[in-house]
Design a protein around this nucleic acid. Structure first.
Length: 572
RNA sequence: CGGGGUGUGGCGCAGUUGGCUAGCGCGCCGCGUUUGGGACGCGGAGGCCGGAGGUUCGAGUCCUCUCACCCCGACCA
C-alpha cells in the first residue's frame, strides 16, 4: 500500500479524554477511532492487525478440530428463559431491545444458550461427540464503566468456543487440549513469556475453578498471586492465603468491654484502642440462598472473600445480611458484630488469620462496645477448624508451599470454563449412549478477547516513539520511506516495492511529498518491524538502508542481499 | 449508581472581577523557498464557545437543568 492511498493520518496530539496508553497510541497512529466510551471502530491499519490476530486464533482452533460458525447478534428470549438467565436481570450487563411488535430480544453478549440450542438439533448420539464449535464476532456488554481503551469496552471482538463431550473424563481431555491451543495463540502473538494460566472463580456455573489466561501488564485490572518457580498463579479473587504470623508472647489478660461511641471500622477502631489493626477482628453477617445466617470473621486488616465463603458454606449464593437481620442477630447496630454470645442458629466461620493471636479485639455485639483481650479457650471455644475466607493480600503466603506470594497486575486475555452439564440439561440436549441410555452432555466454554488482545499488544509492544508490532500481527512488514521525490528515487522505490510484494512481503510505501523527519516519525509511530530507506545517497552507493523498529542502528544492505533476504524468507 | 474532573474550529490549549469583530499552536488550502528526524515565508478557509432555559443593556464568562467524555470505586457469566 502507498501512503498516499491511506485515508487515515497520524496525529501529533491525542484527544485529551483518552488516557489509556493503548488507545492513545492506536488513535494517534490512526488504527482505531473512538465512537463513544468503550466503543471503537477499526480503521484500515487496525483491521489488518485484527485480522492477523483472528487468523492466529482461527488457525489454532481449527488445529484442534474446532468448527467455525457465526451465530446471531439478535437473540430470542425463549432460550434464555429455559436456563433462567433472562428474567430479573440475572445477567446484569445485557443490552436488550424490542421488535416493533414488542417482542423482546437480547443483543449478543455470550452464546451458550443459542449454541446449545442449535447443537441440540443435530447431536443425538454418542457417535456425534465430542466436538467443539467457535466463532469470532462482536459481543455487546453494557459494562457499568468502560475503561482502558480496548481493554474494557462495551462492544468488542471475541472468539468464543464451546465444547461438547460425552462425560467428564472426555471433557477434561478436551479442555486441556483447548488450553494447549490457547498457550500456542499467546505464544504466537509474542505474549508467551508474560501470559500465564491462572486459577479463577468458576462463577455460577461450577464448584470448580475456571482458568484465566492473564498477561502481565500495569494496565491490567486483575491482580495475580504468583509463585513463579512452582508455576502457581491465582487470580486474587480465589488465591488461597495464609496470613503472616503475629509475634506476641504477652500473657492472656482478662476480657474487658470498652465503650467507643460511634467507633466503626477497623482502622478507626485500632487507632481508638491503640492496638495494631491486626489485633482487631472483622465480623460480618451473611445470608445464604438457603436461608442460613452466617457470622464470618477475619483478622481486621483483611476483607472477607465471598467466593471463598460461598465455597466453604457450599452455598449457591452468599450476600451480606441486611441491617435488620444484623440488628436482630447481634442485638446491636451495624459495626459492633462479634462472635461472642451469638444465637445458636448462627453458623460461625472463622478465618485462619484469627487464630494464633492473644488478647485480640472483637465486636461485643452491643452498640458502641468492643471487647478487648479476647482469647481462644478463655472467652471463645478453642477452634479446631479454621478456614480461608479472606481476600489474599500482599504479604500473604501460599498455604501449600508456604511461600510468599509475588503480586502482579495483569489483563485477562482468555478465560476457559468448565460448564458441566448445566446448559445442556436445562435446554434438554442429551445424547444416547452405546447401550441406548440417554446421557447428559458435558460442556465447556472458552473465550479470547480479540480486540482486547490488540490493546494488550499496543500496551506491551510500544515505546515513547510509538507502536512496535510483533511480526505475527503487524499490518505491514516494511515501511519503505522514499526520501526525496526525484524520478530516480521514485523509480527505485517502485521497483523495490514491486519486488518485495512479489515475494509476499507486505510493504507500506511512504511516497508522500513530505520531509524526511515526518516519515521517520511516522515509521516509528506505526511500528512496522522494518524500515527501508531509499534516497539519493543510498542510490549513489547502490544500497538500501535497513532498520529494525526494535533497534537504534541502521545497516546498509546491498540490493542483492536484500533480495536474497526476501526470497529466502530470511530475516524479513 | 457514588466521588472527583473536563467540554471553546479536525487535534492540543488560552480567554482576568460579564464588555466591543473569541485568540494561540498544530493540522488544512494556495503560492514560493526547502528536503536524512515532525522546516520556513506570505496569503487564506474554518468556531452560533456541548445542549436547553434563565439573570443582564450586554453571557464563552453568572444561575438552573441536561448531555457527553475522562479518572477512582461498586460491577464484570
Amino acid at each position: 500500500m502507498k501512503a498516499t492511498q491511506l485515508f487515515t493520518k497520524t496525529q501529533k496530539t491525542v484527544p485529551a479524554d483518552e488516557k489509556a496508553k493503548n488507545a492513545q497510541l492506536l488513535i494517534k497512529a490512526g488504527f482505531i477511532h473512538k465512537e463513544m466510551s468503550g466503543v471503537y471502530a477499526f480503521l484500515p491499519l487496525g483491521v489488518k492487525v485484527i485480522e492477523n490476530i483472528k487468523n492466529i486464533v482461527r488457525q489454532e482452533m481449527n488445529a484442534i478440530g474446532g468448527q467455525e460458525v457465526v451465530m446471531t447478534t439478535l437473540q430470542p428470549k425463549e432460550i434464555w428463559q429455559k436456563t433462567d438467565r433472562w428474567d430479573d436481570n440475572k445477567v446484569d450487563n445485557w443490552f436488550k431491545t424490542k421488535l416493533v411488535n414488542g417482542t423482546e430480544l437480547g443483543v449478543g453478549l455470550t452464546h451458550e444458550e443459542p449454541i446449545v440450542d442449535v447443537v441440540g438439533q443435530y447431536v443425538h448420539s454418542y457417535k456425534d461427540l465430542p466436538f467443539s464449535v467457535y466463532q469470532i464476532q462482536s459481543k455487546f456488554r453494557n459494562e457499568l464503566r468502560a475503561k482502558s481503551g480496548l481493554l474494557r469496552g462495551r462492544e468488542f471482538l471475541m472468539k468464543d468456543m464451546y465444547s461438547f463431550s460425552k462425560n467428564q473424563t472426555e471433557h477434561d481431555r478436551v479442555y486441556e487440549e483447548i488450553a494447549g491451543a490457547y498457550t500456542k495463540v499467546y505464544k504466537r502473538l509474542g505474549l508467551g513469556d508474560i501470559t500465564f494460566r491462572a486459577k479463577a472463580d468458576g462463577g455460577i456455573f461450577t464448584e470448580k475453578y475456571s482458568d484465566e489466561y492473564q498477561t502481565l501488564s500495569e494496565a491490567g485490572e486483575d491482580t495475580l498471586f504468583c509463585i513463579p518457580e512452582d508455576n502457581i498463579y491465582y487470580n486474587q479473587e480465589v488465591a488461597p492465603s495464609k496470613a503472616p504470623n503475629i509475634k506476641d508472647d504477652s500473657p492472656q489478660a482478662p476480657m474487658k468491654e470498652v465503650e467507643g461511641v460511634g467507633i466503626v471500622g477497623v482502622q478507626e477502631l485500632a487507632k481508638f484502642l491503640k492496638i495494631p489493626v491486626e489485633k482487631t477482628t472483622k465480623t460480618m453477617l451473611y445470608q445464604t440462598n438457603d436461608g442460613r445466617i452466617v457470622a464470618a470473621a477475619v483478622r481486621g486488616n483483611y476483607n472477607i472473600n465471598e467466593i471463598k465463603l460461598r465455597k466453604v458454606l457450599k452455598a449457591k449464593e452468599v450476600h451480606l445480611a441486611p441491617p435488620e437481620i444484623v440488628k436482630k442477630v447481634t442485638k446491636a447496630d451495624i459495626g459492633y458484630a462479634g462472635l461472642l454470645n451469638l444465637p445458636k442458629d448462627v453458623q460461625i466461620v472463622i478465618d485462619e488469620s484469627c487464630l494464633n493471636r492473644v488478647n485480640f479485639e472483637m465486636g461485643a455485639n452491643k452498640t458502641n462496645c468492643h471487647s478487648i483481650n479476647v482469647n481462644w479457650g478463655q472467652d471463645l471455644p478453642e477452634q479446631k477448624q479454621a478456614y480461608d475466607i479472606k481476600t489474599a493480600k500482599e504479604g500473604d503466603f501460599h498455604p501449600d508451599t508456604g511461600k510468599l506470594y509475588q503480586i502482579k497486575k495483569a489483563v485477562e486475555v482468555g478465560n476457559i470454563f468448565p460448564l458441566e452439564t448445566k446448559y445442556t440439561d436445562l435446554l434438554d440436549v442429551y445424547y444416547t449412549d452405546e447401550s441406548g441410555k440417554q446421557q447428559s452432555i458435558v460442556m465447556g466454554c472458552y473465550g479470547i478477547g480479540v480486540s482486547r488482545l490488540m490493546g494488550v499488544l499496543a500496551e506491551h509492544f510500544s515505546d515513547s516513539k510509538g507502536l512496535i508490532w510483533p511480526k505475527a500481527v503487524t499490518p505491514f512488514m516494511v515501511y519503505l520511506a522514499q526520501i526525496g521525490t526525484d524520478k530516480s528515487i521514485t523509480n527505485e522505490s517502485q521497483e523495490l516495492y514491486n519486488i518485495l510484494q512479489a515475494n509476499g512481503v507486505e510493504v507500506f510505501w511512504d511516497n508522500r511529498d513530505v520531509r524526511p523527519g515526518e516519515k521517520f516519525a511516522d515509521a516509528d509511530l506505526y511500528g512496522f518491524p522494518y524500515r527501508l530507506v531509499i534516497s539519493k545517497k543510498t542510490i549513489e552507493q547502490n544500497v538500501y538502508e535497513l532498520k529494525e523498529r526494535t533497534k537504534d542502528q541502521t545497516q546498509m544492505v546491498t540490493k542483492v542481499d536484500l533480495i536474497k533476504l526476501v526470497t529466502n524468507k530470511g530475516t524479513l
